[in-house]
Design a protein around this nucleic acid. Sequence first.
DNA 1: TGAAAGTGGTTGTCGCGGCAACTGACGCCC
DNA 2: GGGCGTCAGTTGCCGCGACAACCACTTTCA
Lengths: 159, 159
Amino acid sequence: METPRWLTPEQLRAWIRLESVVELLPTVLDSQLQRDAQLTHFEYLVLAKLSEAPEHVLRMTRLAAITNSTLPRLSHVVSRLEARGYLERRPCPEDRRATNAHLTETGWQKVVATAPGHVANVRAHVIDLLTDEQVEQLDGIMATLLERLDPQNSLRRLP
Amino acid sequence: METPRWLTPEQLRAWIRLESVVELLPTVLDSQLQRDAQLTHFEYLVLAKLSEAPEHVLRMTRLAAITNSTLPRLSHVVSRLEARGYLERRPCPEDRRATNAHLTETGWQKVVATAPGHVANVRAHVIDLLTDEQVEQLDGIMATLLERLDPQNSLRRLP
DNA sequence: TGAAAGTGGTTGTCGCGGCAACTGACGCCC
DNA sequence: GGGCGTCAGTTGCCGCGACAACCACTTTCA
């Protein structure tokens, strides 16, 4: 074990700030959605991704991948959303192991009603605070980090 | 309610990537610390901040602020860390409402033993992947976001 | 063709974080 | 100087997420 390479003051400052944002941002997203739509951020994400999918249908595995989640976690939240009538599980005809999540009409209406407030929140806390140049820089930096955090790049891997 | 201002494709892409990093990064930090030191990232943060404080002592309120936490959350985790012998609670002499958290020698040793692995992990997943220029950009962007997320700027406000 | 390995998904248990209610101590202010 | 609002901190309960064990189906290959 070699002696550790510490961070320079500049690196440390950037890291502490990133750490803080990573800690605080989820709370801001969750509380707006909870207040205005009784949804967690993750629940909203599931509904939103479904609403963007062709036919409003996605396989559980695929849905887990694009929401950066695990199958058990997704399964739990899908059960909750199903109980509230926002989506339905249906067995997949081609592969009888698989399950498809279908957004219901109620679920679609929920997304339509909730999206504007959520976008406004994202603007207010992130996008509108940054210059176009900073948004571009942010995109590049996050893309680099994702390559390491998510090597399979599940967000791009299509079915 | 006016019609919502949607995000441009560039903004959307940057946002989705930030969203993903915010979702995935905590897991990476937690699992390394859990594996190598049986600590959550937040527990480590508490010990680390104490270890940087003069006399290795901080008031609970102050500790909550610099860890971006709430008092109830901190109180719970301090109880756990106290049970494991890493710190002690002591009533504050000047203000009998207040409690001081003291890092023990065992706790200090734990931080010393754990820090190098944690820093290496931060390097591997964040800092070493970015150019110096990107680190600087990241710092600027996160500073801007923190101004909104944490208006009191508790990280700077000294006792 | 049938056993073994692999894949898709669900369920159960446990631990942490959020919130609300509560206690005790300080300070104000007439 | 006693009562009232506020502040510091703790506790209890609830809900979500992680993990592991499990079931069902598919694929492979001898």
